[in-house]
């Protein structure tokens, strides 16, 4: 479904991705792990078109998407829940969700998905008239995920959805990822919580200093001594 070939990209003149190659097949959950500053978010931004490539190629369902503007890439079915939530603080919860469906014309489908998002995150229903900026951090994370789902993406990029959440909410978020996947969405998941990410994913990649250091099935990575030492706390 998604393929990155030797992707080199960065901000200004410094390249912080130095030849990243990875793929995601339809129906998979793939996790991208790595230390702070390894280039995980940059990889997702390159896929979405917010960061330009200086070399390499990105293809979605066999067609090149690198070089397209971000709104066109979203139009091809790539959803991106960015790092740090990035909800619209002075719009209401409902308006945020409605904008998630900006590209869609099917009113009935949008209404159906809104009901689904409210079912996944009942709290958002109660707060739908509240300004997003007045939600707690955890609530904003749920809103960001809900907003991403409202576009009905075929491929969902999630950037650290559990960051800063209490353990109970972390469970909620991972349950939702499981349900999104069961509903037919392919997921590329960036996570700090490597243990949970490897438990839910089919395969994983370890990114180190802008390059893929390891690629394997999730169970194999979870058993790998190097991964255990570096990312699973020994």
């Amino acid at each position: 479904m998604l393929r990155l070939d030797n992707v080199t990209a960065g901000y200004g003149t410094t390249a912080c991705l130095k030849g990243v190659t990875l793929f995601v097949q339809a129906g998979e959950i793939v996790t991208l792990l790595g230390a702070n500053g390894a280039g995980k978010s940059t990889t997702l931004l390159a896929i979405s078109g917010l960061v330009r490539l200086s070399r390499g190629a990105i293809a979605l369902n066999g067609a090149r998407i690198d070089g397209l503007p971000p709104e066109a890439i979203a139009g091809r079915g790539v959803g991106h829940v960015p790092e740090g939530r990035r909800v619209f603080p002075r719009l209401t919860v409902l308006e945020n969700l409605q904008l998630g469906a900006y590209l869609r014309g099917d009113q009935a489908g949008v209404a159906h998905d809104l009901a689904w998002v409210f079912e996944l995150f009942p709290l958002l229903r109660d707060r739908r008239r509240q300004l997003a900026g007045t939600l707690s951090g955890g609530e904003q994370q749920m809103l960001a995920m809900g907003r991403g789902l409202m576009g009905r993406p075929a491929l969902l990029l999630l950037d650290e959805p559990s960051l800063g959440l209490a353990p109970k909410l972390v469970q909620v978020v991972f349950d939702v990822i499981r349900r999104i996947h069961q509903a037919g969405t392919t997921v590329l998941l960036v996570e700090q919580n490597a243990r949970l990410a490897l438990a839910i994913a089919h395969r994983g990649y370890i990114l180190e200093a802008g390059a893929i250091a390891l690629a394997d099935t999730a169970p194999a990575l979870a058993d790998n001594p190097r991964v255990k030492a570096a990312y699973l706390g020994g």
Partner: peptide
Amino acid sequence: NACRLLGIP
């Protein structure tokens, strides 16, 4: 930029 990720031109 968050708009662009949602497909808003």
